[in-house]
Amino acid sequence: MDTTVAIELAVNGTPVGRRVEPRLCLADFLRYDLELTGTHVGCEHGVCGACTVRVDGALVRACLMLAVQADGCRVETIEGVSGTGEVSDLQQAFAEANALQCGFCTPGMLLTAHEILQREPGADPARIRLALSGNYCRCTGYQAIVDAVHRVGGARGRETR
């Protein structure tokens, strides 16, 4: 018996149609069905932040949303925001500040950091650290990540003045 459900959504601007099992989470759909492996899967219960993506503009955990729930939605992954250059300044700063080692947390960190800076352009290091507390990094000890995000926040602020 076919238990799959048809879904249609836009992923990084491209219309996608697939049939999926209801129990398939959005993160696994992105990784296995669409081969967008920049969205990482760590804890599978919403704690580590590695699977963070945007759905209809909102930051979400792709391990806590079913692929069927994304039917009709606009999904953006790290591949999408890298391609458009939306986070290129953050990526550059992460490289310069040594804000990544293994890179497993980096896609989620970049998407979360971008959202923080959009909501609070002048966020100080303490606010940045608090907002990134839902994204685990087991390599860097976080200081370099906070430095990189803070530096970009300052640079973006200067550009818009």
């Binding site: 919403g46 806590l64 507390s133």
Partner: peptide, 9 residues
């Protein structure tokens, strides 16, 4: 409550 990417949902 948890973190932003949880509170959005």
């Amino acid at each position: 409550v948890a973190h932003l990417a949880v509170r959005t949902r």
